[in-house]
């Protein structure tokens, strides 16, 4: 008997807030999207957005001194990736998403920015983005449409 077509896949995991654990989580995300028929380019977009969001949690919410747990959930269909990340680290400044203002690049070489690109990429590549901090938990939700051409 033929198997029914799977309409959505869920990936639910908990990871340590370390760069190596982030790598492992991203590999599983890519594998999941691959199974759902996502091509290389939109897979890359989802990988990048999740990487940036996880890196922010690793570096800023928890920081190098006190690693913690991150929960990552991905619900993927052939067309959509819905991602929810939660952590118990520090809230984003003002408990709100950072603005999208890009850093100035018309400056001498030694003044060029070496960071601050993460939220620019997340905002630019997400189709929906929301954040809240409640009861000591950071809660970030991201939607990426496979065909948004971003």
């Amino acid at each position: 008997m033929p198997q029914p077509v799977t309409e959505q896949t869920m990936l639910d995991m908990s990871l340590e807030s370390t760069p190596v654990a982030v790598r492992g989580a991203l590999a599983r995300v890519v594998e999941t999207l691959c199974c759902m028929g996502w091509d290389e380019e939109p897979r890359g977009t989802v990988q990048l957005v999740i990487a940036e969001a996880l890196n922010n949690i690793v570096e800023h919410a928890y920081g190098a001194g006190c690693p913690g747990q991150i929960s990552l959930r991905l619900r993927a269909t052939a067309e959509l990736a819905d991602i929810v990340m939660t952590d118990h680290g520090m809230a984003l400044p003002g408990a709100t998403l950072p603005g999208a203002a890009p850093a100035r690049l018309d400056v001498p070489r030694y003044d060029l920015p070496e960071g601050g690109f993460g939220w620019q990429l997340i905002r630019g590549l997400s189709d929906r983005l929301s954040y809240r901090h409640s009861n000591g938990v950071n809660h970030l939700e991201i939607r990426i449409c496979r065909c948004s051409g971003k």
Binding site: Y110, L112, P113, E114
Partner: peptide
């Protein structure tokens, strides 16, 4: 390289800034 994130990008910028004028 098939994947770079913003910390990789920052590393490339930092390496460039470390070069002579």
């Amino acid at each position: 390289v098939d994947f770079i994130d913003s910390s990789g990008l920052g590393a490339i910028v930092a390496a460039m800034k470390g070069m002579a004028d």
